[in-house]
């Protein structure tokens, strides 16, 4: 090949490397943190719903203390499966850009019923009915706040969905461009097109993984509460481990293919000779 052809080949390989690397990265995040089912799976694995139930119970207990009402009024107003349904629904809505809300009618009805039963059983007359209504509202607020964590989630939901769609589109475009460019390189230059991009991508993924691990003090991170922090840490370690494994496998497999195809070509020539 003349010099211009060689330079063109390496330039196109460099572009293809970029395309392949970002295709891998986007796909990697698409099947992990940008996938609601992945997040839900992590919540299940780390007993998030049990911790959430305990958290809600503890907060309600603190609120109930000065209210003059016992814990029995909030007993059985929700179950762990109610919490799971709400949290999973909230995550799915967050990723699909829908309104993030929590169903509370049943809980409110059960709470009101429990309060009425308690007051009647103990022959307690409440002069200020507003205080009981406000009490119920506050208990429901505790329930909602612990599930939704932050009101800002509702405001970021449309953005999450928008970015998710953009990433989908971009990853498809990148993948198509990569395939097209790979074919162009293969047939124009009669050289292997994907070996260099795959090896470079695996090296880049290892670098990204190391930067994440070295630069982020994940062990001491504290975000919102202990349960959420634990989930974030687990997701981080999981992503890091998967990224490392994928990069190693990609590197090893690509090098093996390179060795086999290069040697095979030479031996084939030898046999034909």
């Amino acid at each position: 090949m003349n010099k211009i052809k060689i330079l063109s080949y390496y330039f196109l390989e460099f572009i293809l490397t970029f395309l392949v690397f970002f295709t891998f990265i986007l796909f990697f995040f698409k099947v992990s943190i940008l996938n609601p089912n992945y997040i839900i799976k992590k919540l299940n694995e780390n007993h998030y719903y049990e911790d959430l139930a305990k958290n809600i119970e503890s907060t309600m207990e603190d609120y109930l203390r000065p209210s003059g009402l016992p814990m029995e009024v909030v007993k059985d107003i929700y179950t762990e499966s109610d919490l799971k349904r709400e949290v999973d629904g909230m995550i799915n809505n967050l990723y699909s850009g829908k309104k993030v809300n929590v169903e509370t009618k049943n809980i409110q009805d059960k709470l009101n019923s429990n309060i009425k039963t308690y007051l009647e059983k103990n022959n307690i007359k409440v002069s200020d009915e507003d205080s009981l209504d406000k009490f119920t509202d506050e208990v429901i607020k505790i329930y909602i706040k612990r599930i939704i964590i932050s009101e800002e989630l509702e405001s970021i939901s449309p953005s999450v969905n928008k970015w998710n769609k953009r990433i989908n589109l971009v990853s498809i475009i990148l993948a198509i461009l990569s395939i097209v460019l790979a074919f162009i390189i293969r047939f124009s230059f009669k050289k292997k097109a994907l070996i260099i991009p795959f090896i470079t991508s695996s090296i880049m993924m290892m670098i990204v993984n190391n930067i994440m691990f070295l630069r982020i003090d994940i062990e001491h991170i504290l975000f919102w509460n202990k349960s959420i922090t634990l989930i974030i840490k687990k997701i981080f370690y999981d992503l890091s481990s998967n990224l490392k494994n994928i990069s190693i496998i990609l590197l090893v497999v690509t090098i093996l293919i390179l060795i086999i195809t290069s040697l095979l070509k030479k031996y084939k020539k030898k046999l034909s000779f």
Partner: peptide
């Protein structure tokens, strides 16, 4: 030699991108 060349170019590309 071809294998080594591909590996060297890959490392060069990775360094350049970084």
């Amino acid at each position: 030699k071809e294998i080594a060349e591909q590996l060297v170019i890959s490392f060069f590309f990775a360094s350049f991108i970084y």
